[in-house]
């Protein structure tokens, strides 16, 4: 008995610390302590640029036809492996397809993998975390142990295993990445719920006889959502990286329009003769993830309660 209590305590501590770490990892706390106008300005310029980049890529995903000069499936066999030029700003691939157009059209699936897997992950993780945090007791222990188990298998390995088990396909890749991100979301959500349950207004509502479910929905959830959303934003970046990684390892699908990871992987063999095929999709991935991270950092700063309190 004593033994297990000790275990719970230690691992509880670890969890708390870890959670704090997770929470803060991509920390932009710098804005908190000093706040000269100038620095805020430059950070905002960066965030603005990131916003423009993200908007542009979203536009690519929604209406690629407006932006891409060529059809992504058009194989001009007379113009294969051409270096970047005026005609083909990012060159052509080994089918004679225009790399720029491919990247523009590939945005949709790349973003889709990222967004869907984050949504699914947040939904499952958030629900589990809420359950664990709100119900407490045995359910909490069981759920969190399960999350510990999931965390023991590193994300990419888990995603790789799941993707291999499910077979290739956009849906399966989304599922694989989502599942591997569940424990992170579940932990943050649980931590939030635990913290907020102890707030005065929750006690107050309980005192005036509000039902637990209504307290959960009206008070606890809305107040716990912000950190989860920030984490989801930053998670979008890592999900896109994970999706590209799986495509790279060959677990993607042979689609008419390859996503960025697949495009990069296909161009890999041409590295020495046509560096542009895999360099530019990699750049697109980096640009997007970078922008998302910049925006996520800013947002985190904005919702960080500690920061709010101090500024």
């Amino acid at each position: 008995m004593k033994h297990s209590a000790a275990a719970a305590k230690t691992s509880g501590r670890l969890r708390r610390i870890r959670q704090a770490g997770l929470d803060k990892a991509p920390c932009g706390a710098q804005h908190r302590t000093s706040g000269t106008k100038l620095r805020f300005g430059s950070a905002d310029v960066l965030t603005g640029l990131a916003g423009i980049a993200v908007s542009f890529l979203v536009l690519c995903a929604l209406v690629p036809g407006w932006i891409a000069p060529y059809s992504p499936t058009e194989m001009n066999t007379a113009a294969i492996l051409q270096a970047p030029s005026v005609l083909h700003p990012l060159g052509t691939d080994y089918f004679g397809r225009d790399v720029f157009s491919l990247i523009v059209y590939g945005t949709r699936d790349s973003l889709l993998i990222g967004i869907c897997s984050v949504l699914v992950g947040v939904l499952i993780g958030g629900t589990l975390g809420t359950l664990a945090g709100y119900a407490g007791g045995k359910l909490d222990t069981v759920l969190m142990r399960l999350m510990d188990v999931l965390l023991t298998v590193p994300g990419i390995l888990l995603a790789l295993t799941i993707a291999a088990a499910l077979g290739p396909g956009l849906r399966n890749i989304v599922l694989a990445i989502a599942i591997s991100s569940v424990p992170g979301y579940a932990r943050v959500m649980r931590g939030q719920i635990l913290a907020i349950r102890r707030r005065g207004y929750v006690f107050a509502s309980r005192a005036i006889g509000a039902r637990p479910s209504s307290i959960l929905i009206r008070h606890v959830l809305p107040n716990s959502a912000a950190p989860l959303l920030v984490m989801a934003t930053l998670g979008l970046g890592s999900s896109i990286l994970a999706g590209a990684g799986l495509s790279f390892l060959g677990l993607g699908v042979l689609k008419e329009i390859p996503d960025w990871g697949a495009l990069l992987s296909q161009g890999r063999g041409y590295l020495t003769v046509a560096w542009w095929i895999c360099t530019f999709p990699g750049l697109a991935i980096t640009l997007f993830v970078l922008s998302i991270n910049l925006i996520g950092d800013r947002w985190r700063d904005a919702v960080d309660p500690k920061r709010k309190g101090k500024v």
Partner: peptide, 22 residues
Amino acid sequence: GLFGISMPTFWSGILLILIFSV
């Protein structure tokens, strides 16, 4: 910090090969 968490490892690996080996 930003590039580290934003660049796919396989891409940075390929770039390294391109620059330092090729």
